[in-house]
Nucleic acid binder design. Structure first.
Lengths: 261, 261
DNA sequence: ATTGTCATATTGTCATACCAATGTCAAGAT
DNA sequence: ATCTTGACATTGGTATGACAATATGACAAT
């Protein structure tokens, strides 16, 4: 069969473009996104009923529903039977599901996440020191004070820690950074809980947060960045220690409660 | 006046949770994500036909399709008539649609994007200098060489520039950073084109890329980071200039306001 | 004033049918 | 032998109708 030679290339090279039919659902999704983008659909606003939208889009209810359902699952829309469909109020759920998917379908190393997180939270700290409003800074102060008296309650401490970092990200006044930090932190939640189990972890963490807070209050962007990045670097080291020290063999997803035999 | 007094609050505060019925499509989506996450479904692998999946999930084809369609639109699956449905090979499309949606439904300032980009590409340059493989570095060198002889072809230059930055991000060996840079860069594409219209923009850009390249080849992470961030900072300044000089008023549509949310 | 009931509108689910695109493979043409 | 062609089966894409489940408001009953 080696004589299946190449001389058979007499097929003329026509300059045509492949025809591509975008699916109807795809099209509808894009249109709705555009409507939201242009402001014709505002957050919380209700959409016409599915049957009405069918005729507006000149599509079947099947195709329309595939589009609406997709947007609902992603958190862009909220739909409930009897009530109708409306634009979601908070776009955060969207990013949450998204990163959850991303993290699930494509493995990202914890170290990769931390590398990005260190950079972003560094920016956030610097920006907060530079531009943060007094109210935001006050809130950070309160949170650190609460952390200081919660060093014996790991669960509460973790919640306060999360609140601190997100509040600081918000104070940076860069919404993209706030979004990214939120979703990345969500992926690291388990790791955070582990780190806090280490002895002295919480008191040390309080001191580090105090250092960040001080730099932010002093309106020293670079110091704030350095303090934040130092905090997260040691947190990364503590995570590695926790990972190796504590039941190291398996670290993966879920503990399979083997039950008390 | 207000005799609708408050004493009527004897309604006991019960700790109950609202009833929530997850839709079938939602459930199927979660299950498929889990299958991909657990490795039971690998990238490129084909799923059973829709009609088969119907019986496996014990759901109607409508519900099943709403789930599959959602995953297809988001880029997690790829489906074509006659061929079947399979797990997408390239997860980048997913992040692209995601950020596109996010950018559309929630306004992000160009400056916010650049701030994040500067940090991430700084990391990428440093990591590439530290860990980049020789082949990756060689590719960067080739790209800069091509850029140097393309200073009169803005379109080609822009493509080479994009290639350079993404290749460097890839060389950093941090997939999350590569993803984020890719999508952020996608949002900035128009801005990049504008900047290159400025006089001397391309020759200057070449020099800056050479500086980055040199630092990376010298295996000097901090120098590489500094060179990259200097490059992007001047690019930002050039963008502002281009925005103000050229027909400015229209189209940016992002005005930064202290968003409270 | 609270509760029960009903009508109505809307989303959620299902079953069925048909269309369009793709792959398979055998029959026929060269 | 090799290539083309066409029929056929498989599969995703679309459309339609029907019914269930849920939320809302009006209204009667207690």
């Amino acid at each position: 069969m080696t004589q299946t030679k190449t001389r058979k290339i007499k097929t003329t090279r026509l300059k045509v473009r492949p025809i591509r039919k975008n699916s109807i659902s795809d099209d509808i999704v894009q249109q709705i996104i555009s409507l939201i983008s242009s402001g014709d659909l505002k957050a919380g606003q209700r959409l016409p009923s599915e049957r009405d939208l069918c005729v507006k889009f000149a599509a079947s209810r099947t195709s329309l529903r595939e589009a609406l359902r997709c947007l609902s699952i992603m958190g862009v829309l909220t739909a409930r039977a009897g009530e109708g469909t409306s634009v979601a109020m908070d776009g955060v759920k969207f990013m949450e599901t998204v990163l959850q998917w991303r993290m699930s379908t494509e493995l990202h190393d914890i170290e990769d996440l931390m590398e990005v997180r260190i950079a972003l939270e560094g920016i956030a700290a610097a920006s907060a020191a530079e531009n943060g409003k007094e109210a935001d800074l006050k809130r950070l102060q309160d949170l650190v004070a609460k952390m200081e008296v919660s060093v014996n309650d790991a669960k509460r401490f973790a919640a306060l820690d999360l609140d601190f970092h997100l509040s600081l990200a918000k104070a940076s006044n860069n919404k993209l950074i706030h979004d990214l930090i939120t979703v990345i932190r969500g992926q690291l939640e388990r790791g955070v809980a582990k780190v806090l189990q280490l002895p002295k972890a919480m008191p040390l963490s309080v001191e580090e947060h105090k250092a960040i807070l001080q730099a932010v209050f002093a309106r020293q962007p670079e110091e704030a960045r350095a303090a934040m990045q130092a905090h997260l670097n040691t947190a990364t080291l503590r995570y590695r220690a926790a990972k190796n020290k504590l039941h190291s063999p398996e670290e993966s997803s879920h503990l399979k409660a083997a039950g008390k035999s």
